[in-house]
């Protein structure tokens, strides 16, 4: 099957998604809830692209290609929708996401600075009971990647999505923490998390120590 990504023809297999076509064409489409290891999900609306002749932008990660489809990864409406979505997500966080995270990379892609909207922000809520894993609930953006990685890659079913709206978050076990849950410490959740809402003690220690070091250099 042939489709066109930003006017470039690409050959794709039956059932391929718009995102897969864009990747083959080497056209960058930002993603946030997407992970190659997981089933497609389509929650974050960051991978929006335009389709010529289509009524509205579509999520690239869940939209299957059709023969001859003409995909516009730089569609203005799609970019605006995605950018606003990311900006809204950022506005709920108590601080800008760490530079290395996927969320920060997406924010850089959309050239987003301080969010324009000042709404309620998640208060810091850290759970460091596990010897390796740390939950920083305030950084959770409910992309569902950790829950899906736990289910679809490991099969431990230790993580659950909880709450609604602004209170949406994730929990290990029934809020008992990783150690009392069915967690097997495979770390797939921390590995896939795009915001460091789940990360490692050692990496937080590293960030803290390099912050101190940099501070001393500046002084």
């Amino acid at each position: 099957m042939e489709v066109f990504v930003d006017d470039k023809p690409v050959e794709i297999s039956e059932g391929a998604t718009v995102l897969e076509a864009a990747r083959i064409a080497d056209s960058y489409v930002p993603t946030l809830c997407f992970d190659d290891r997981l089933e497609q999900f389509g929650a974050c609306r960051v991978c929006m692209v335009g389709i010529e002749g289509g009524r509205a932008p579509v999520a690239a990660c869940t939209t299957p290609c059709t023969e001859g489809m003409r995909i516009r990864t730089t569609d203005e409406t799609a970019r605006r929708v995605a950018s606003n979505t990311v900006e809204l997500v950022l506005s709920e966080l108590p601080a800008a996401p760490a530079d290395h995270t996927e969320l920060a990379a997406v924010a850089r892609f959309f050239k987003l600075g301080e969010p324009r909207w000042q709404g309620e922000q998640h208060p810091p809520d850290e759970d460091g009971r596990h010897p390796y894993l740390v939950l920083q609930h305030e950084l959770c953006i409910s992309c569902g990647r950790c829950v899906r990685a736990c289910d679809e890659v490991q099969g431990a079913f230790a993580l659950t999505a909880t709450g609604r709206g602004f209170r949406a978050n994730i929990t290990a076990g029934l809020d008992s923490g990783f150690e009392e849950s069915t967690c097997v410490t495979c770390g797939a959740c921390a590995d896939t998390c795009p915001t460091d809402a789940i990360t490692e003690h050692l990496l937080l220690d590293l960030a803290a120590s390099s912050a101190t070091t940099n501070g001393e250099v500046e002084r």
Partner: peptide
Amino acid sequence: NKGHTCLKGRF
């Protein structure tokens, strides 16, 4: 491992 590992290899 296809992008996965366990608590020994990873941690």
